Each structure stands twice: as structure tokens, then as C-alpha cells.
Computed example of a mutant assay.
Amino acid sequence: MSDLPTLSVLDLVPVRSDQDTADAIAATLALARVADDLGYRRYWLAEHHNMPAVAATNPPVLIGMVAGATRRLRVGSGGVMLPNHAPLVVAEQFALLEAAYPGRIDLGIGRAPGTDPVTGWALRHGAGGVTDEAVSRFPEYVENVLAMMEPDGVGLAVQGRTHVLRATPAARSVPQIWLLGSSDYSALLAAEKGMPYVFAHHFSGNGTGEALALYRSRFRPSPELAAPRTFLTVNASVAADAAEARRRALPQLQMMLALRSGQPLGPQVSVEEAEQAELSDAQWASIDAMAERWVIGTPAEARTRIADLAASYDVDEVMVNSVAGAAAGTEPGTSPAREETLRLLVG
């Protein structure tokens, strides 16, 4: 990887129309082992709920699976959507993961719900309050998580007495904690708290430069971080032939089109099914515009594109969401095209 920035992996644990949840998890574990063997730095797992094509509903559970199946990768959340959860629960989960895999756990924290309003209510019922309250208290929740994972814990004043809350009885280390976002809000909060920050470039591709510039200009050093630290996230489909790389990206491109236009979602279709989809000229134009922001092409083209993005945004690490779809007849517990994207990127 000497000619590239350091590479990492983002995984939403996609579920195809030929898979059940067990198959999708098996494919993720296989992909993580490939990333581990190839020398990728991190493997982050997303949090999305009640979506027919995404099995990444519970990052801490998946992190434990992936960390146990790999040797050297840093494994983390990209991210835990904190307003969905009680801060103490998140702190407990990640304190245990860090204890089990010391020096290998990342906690990426986000503010978005990662789901629809009804599912969001079900997630928060009895734990995080109503949506507006949970979101408005996000900075407080972040502080709580940080403090609870420290060996000394945090003091909670109740009826004139101080009760100490610790995420785990005897912490020796804490996970590396990042703030994630797709707006200026998290960039400013990360800068104010002196935390590392990642903008969700893979999701929109818009506003990345502005958010990173704001984060860097407002950054205040903290005991944990002396200078700004960030990296870039991208969607990628890589194949020996550029047309094949674009073909493999079609299922994910069409799913993102459906998500953004409010159409019903289903499991991810095969490459052949995506090719047969009947779309309007306007829909194909939207897909083309999205594809322009993704890394799609041959290995040489993809490496050049990633190197250019890293230089443009002044980052030394790029996290790849491998979005290459599967051909009809692919073994359900595997994702060979996603694995090939990772292999071809490193040469």
C-alpha cells in the first residue's frame, strides 16, 4: 500500500435477495478476514435499524464477532447512534470489548437516528427519551460515555450523595473514540472537545471539505489528542475491467436511489437483476451523478482516485465501503466481489 494512504473498511453487513441474516454475517466475517490478511487498518460496522438490506443493527455485537475472527485489525463502530441508547449501556459495551481486545477497539459515535421515526421510538422507549430530547442532549451523552469508561468513572449526584458510575470494574485502557457526522454540528463538537472526527463522505459526497476545514480551524487540543485527526470514507467497486466495476456497483446505486427518493426498500438485488431494472432517464441521471462521487473502476483507476481524494482533503487514511454487488448464483455466505475490491485496491 506504499503508493496509497492507509486503507480501512466500512461494512453495513448488506443482505442480498439470496441471503438470510446468517449468510450476511458469514460474508462479513469472511470479508473481515480478507481485510485483516491484506493489512487494512480498521474495520468499522455501521448502525442501521429495520432495513431489509442491512444487517448491521448492533455494532457492539458485530464488533465482538469480527474482533474474534481477526488478528490485528482495529475493529469499531461507524458508528453507534448515541441518541438511540443510554450512554451507560454504550460505555459498558465498549469497555468490555476493549478489555477483551485491548488496543484494537474504536468507538465511533454519531448523532443521526439511523432509522425511521417509528423504529427510533421503539429503540429509545424507556432509555433515551423522545427524539428531540435525545438529540439535544447529544453533547452531554458524549461526555458521559467518555467519563464512564475511564478507570475512575463519573460521579452522579443523587439526593445529596455522589454515586460513582463505572462502565467496567477495573479498566486498564479505553477504546479510541471518534465523532462521526454529515453536517457542521459534529465537526464543531469534535473540534471543541479535542476529539478525532470523520465526515460521512461516502453517504453524500457534499460538504466534506467545508466540514473538515471547520473542524481543523476550530480544533482545541485535549489530553487525548494534540492536533486534529480525521480520515475520508468512500464507496468503492473495483474490478479488472472498468465496465465490470460499474456493473457490480449497480445494485447499491439503485438502492441508494430508492432510499433518497422515498421508494420502498428491499434486499439488495443481484447484478443481473439490477441490469434489468426499468428506470427513467432522470433516475439513470441520478445514478450517474452518484457514481461520479464513488470510486468505481480498474485497480489503477481506483488507486489514483483514492490517492487524489486523500490529497485533496489532506488525509492519510481512507475508509472503503466495498459496494460491489454479487452475481446471480453466488454462494449465499460469501461476497466475492466485495472481497475482490479490497484485494485489487492493494495490488
Rank of each mutant, 00 (worst) to 15 (best):
A200R: 03
H201L: 02
H201M: 11
H202L: 06
H202Y: 14
H202W: 04
F203V: 12
F203I: 14
S204C: 01
G205V: 07
G205Y: 01
G207S: 04
E210W: 00
A211C: 13
L212M: 09
L212A: 06
L214N: 07
L214K: 04
P221W: 02
A227N: 05
R229F: 08
R229L: 09
T230W: 06
F231H: 12
A236S: 08
V238W: 09
A240H: 11
A249H: 02
Q252T: 14
Q254P: 06
Q254L: 13
Q254D: 02
R260E: 14
R260T: 15
S261Y: 13
S261A: 10
G262M: 08
Q263M: 11
Q263A: 13
Q263N: 12
P264W: 01
L265V: 11
L265D: 09
V269F: 03
V269T: 13
V271H: 02
V271Y: 00
E272T: 10
E272Q: 15
E272H: 03
Q276S: 13
A277D: 05
L279V: 12
A282P: 09
Q283R: 08
Q283I: 01
I287D: 10
D288F: 03
D288V: 02
E292L: 13
E292Y: 13
R293G: 11
R293W: 09
R293D: 01
R293L: 14
W294N: 00
V295W: 03
V295S: 02
I296A: 06
I296W: 03
G297V: 07
T298A: 05
R303H: 08
T304D: 14
R305P: 10
I306C: 01
I306G: 00
A307S: 15
A307I: 08
A307T: 14
D308E: 15
D308F: 05
L309P: 01
S312L: 15
Y313Q: 04
Y313E: 03
D314S: 15
D316S: 15
E317S: 01
M319P: 01
N321T: 12
V323E: 12
A324C: 02
G325P: 09
G325R: 10
A326G: 03
A327M: 08
A328T: 15
